[in-house]
């Protein structure tokens, strides 16, 4: 990694002088990264992607791809990119073969190359049996798979995937994630998704956007570390009440909260290293003779890290407003 494939510098987009969809966003995607783009609904993810593709113009700032500024006229740059939109819409009367052939022509591919690629791609996305059917009759999952094939027809260096697992069944989702991980070895990928576990599974870096503002950019590991709140979660086979009684006497425990009948979240002192907290908890469990099912640091989950970031941003906004 090293070379910057995507750079967003103070990127801003205001629609109709009323809606600030993207507000002074600064993100960088380096070559070889699988960059996860996270944010709640309406955060500005799709708008940012459209700016990245030159479909809309920024109100302020710029977006650079492969070192060049992206504009609506940057057809050469888009020739090095592949894009899978969310809930894609394709010409309904076309078939996968005619559509991929059309897209290949848009990228200036020769006949032999186009035909070779499209047949390989149709096979790899599992649409061989439907290759001559009109797209109008396709299910959501089939359309998504066709979209993925279209995004790869030009063998792009940068792949932009907006909700790539949308509409896929569990096995389709797994296959798509495996494909993305495999493609990530050769290409730079930007994935926008609501499914945090997908992002956690395949991405090396992540950018979080909320209400148009970038609130985090960095590696997944750094994201989880930065929001660590010193919590250990235990799942027990009974005896939760006894454990809670014993925890009251422990000095390194700040607070604890039961989760149902089997789990306890223990918030420990910030000065206490994680290893000591885990040791203290396991010793306590052993002393009480309880049956431990699992122990984890709840902040190692991307969901908690993501929600923590959103909460922090919300607090910052209130403080600023006050």
């Amino acid at each position: 990694m090293g070379q910057k494939v995507v750079e967003m510098n103070d990127l801003t987009k205001i629609f109709g002088e009323k809606l600030i969809a993207v507000n002074n966003v600064n993100f960088t995607v380096e070559q070889g990264a699988i960059f996860g783009f996270l944010g709640p609904n309406g955060a500005g993810k799709t708008t940012t992607i459209r700016l990245l593709l030159g479909l809309i113009r920024p109100t302020a700032g710029e977006v650079r791809v492969f070192g060049e500024e992206m504009t609506p006229g940057s057809s050469e740059l888009r020739g090095r990119m592949g894009y899978l939109p969310t809930n894609p819409r394709f010409p309904p009367k076309m078939t996968p073969i005619t559509y991929l052939d059309f897209v290949g022509k848009l990228f200036g591919l020769g006949v032999e190359e186009r035909m070779g690629r499209l047949s390989a791609l149709i096979r790899s996305v599992g649409l061989l049996g439907d290759s001559s059917r009109e797209i109008a009759g396709f299910s959501t999952g089939m359309v998504t798979r066709l979209g993925l094939a279209a995004a790869l027809i030009n063998d792009p260096e940068l792949l932009i995937l907006d909700e790539p697992t949308s509409g896929l069944d569990p096995s389709g989702r797994r296959e798509t994630l495996e494909l993305i991980a495999k493609l990530g070895k050769e290409k730079t990928i930007l994935v926008s998704s609501h499914i945090l576990s997908d992002i956690d599974r395949i991405c090396t870096h992540v950018g979080v956007i909320s209400q148009g503002k970038a609130i985090f950019s960095g590696s997944i590991k750094d994201m989880k570390k930065s929001t660590r709140s010193h919590v250990v979660r235990l799942e027990l086979e009974g005896g939760v009440e006894r454990l809670c009684g014993a925890l009251k006497a422990e000095k390194w425990v700040v607070s604890f909260e039961t989760r149902g009948d089997f789990a306890v979240d223990i918030d420990f002192d910030a000065e206490t290293p994680m290893a000591d907290a885990v040791k203290g908890v396991t010793e306590l469990v052993s002393r009480l003779g309880l049956d431990l099912i699992s122990i984890s640091s709840s902040t190692s989950s991307i969901e908690d890290a993501f929600m923590g970031l959103l909460r922090d941003e919300e607090s910052r906004r209130f403080l600023t407003a006050a």
């Binding site: 459209r50 593709l53 479909l55 609506p72 006229g73 057809s75 050469e76 888009r78 020739g79 894009y83 939109p85 894609p88 819409r89 394709f90 010409p91 559509y99 897209v103 848009l106 990228f107 200036g108 979209g147 279209a150 030009n154």
Partner: peptide, 19 residues
């Protein structure tokens, strides 16, 4: 009539507006 698929299918590819 193709406003819905214009961005997704065509203009996001190696195509200029003038083309």
């Amino acid at each position: 009539s193709e406003a819905g698929e214009l961005a997704d299918s065509i203009l996001s590819k190696s195509v200029t507006r003038l083309d």
